Simulated scan of single mutants.
Amino acid sequence: MAKERIKENVIDAPTLFVGVGGTGCRIVRRVAEMCRPGERENVNFVCLDTNVNDLASVSGSRSHIYTVQTSNTQTVGNYLDYDADALNNWFPKNAVLYDKTVSEGAGQCGDHLRLGLQRVP
């Protein structure tokens, strides 16, 4: 039986893989690590997350991945001080969350993620 020759994948068009949140970033990291050197010429990877620790683990991979932290180190309460709409209309009334820093991650809470995308002066 003849040995099968596997042709290297050729990616002509520029391709961007985007991971959002912890799980999305882990998936992008796995895809990036599976790419062989010749396949990376027209491929880029970017991860967006509120959690600084998740981004640090992605940055530590052997593949080059751009990371974007979508929050800062202020607390949820600080964010709510500048966003009356969130405080009064859509963010859950939960005092325990107010002391948590947004950079700790959204923890599967869509409202926390939405708040983290707000820019605080």
Rank of each mutant, 00 (worst) to 15 (best):
I65R: 05
D111F: 04
H112Y: 06
E8K: 14
N78L: 10
P37T: 10
D111M: 01
C109P: 01
L16A: 01
C25A: 10
A106E: 02
V28S: 01
Y82H: 15
G38H: 10
I6D: 12
G77I: 04
K3Q: 05
N51V: 02
T15Y: 10
V68K: 14
S59A: 15
D54T: 09
D49H: 08
C35Y: 11
A32S: 03
D12L: 10
G19R: 04
N89Y: 00
R26M: 12
P92I: 03
Q74I: 01
C47G: 07
V68A: 11
I11E: 13
C109A: 13
T23R: 12
A86W: 00
R62T: 13
Y66G: 11
R5F: 13
C35V: 13
V43L: 11
F91C: 05
G116E: 00
G24K: 03
L80F: 06
F45G: 08
E4D: 13
H64A: 07
H112R: 03
Q108M: 14
D49Q: 11
I65H: 05
N53E: 12
A13Y: 13
Q118F: 02
D49G: 07
C47Y: 08
L117N: 02
N51C: 06
T67L: 13
R36S: 11
V102L: 08
V120H: 05
C25R: 01
A56T: 12
T50V: 12
Y66I: 13
N9I: 06
E4C: 09
S63V: 09
N42S: 15
S103T: 07
C47H: 05
C25P: 03
A95Q: 07
F45P: 00
Q69H: 08
K3D: 08
Q74V: 12
N88I: 00
S103G: 04
G38C: 08
N89V: 07
G21C: 02
L48I: 11
A13N: 14
L117G: 06
Q118P: 02
L16S: 00
P121L: 10
R26V: 03
S59N: 15
V120P: 01
Q69V: 10
E39K: 04
T73P: 11
N94R: 15
V68F: 14
G60M: 07
G38P: 06
V43A: 09
L80Y: 04
T15Q: 12
G77D: 06
E33A: 11
N88Q: 05
V76H: 06
Q69M: 15
V68R: 08
G38L: 11
D54M: 02
I65N: 01
V58H: 05
G107V: 08
R29Y: 04
V58R: 03
I27W: 06
R30H: 00
P37L: 10
R114F: 03
G21H: 04
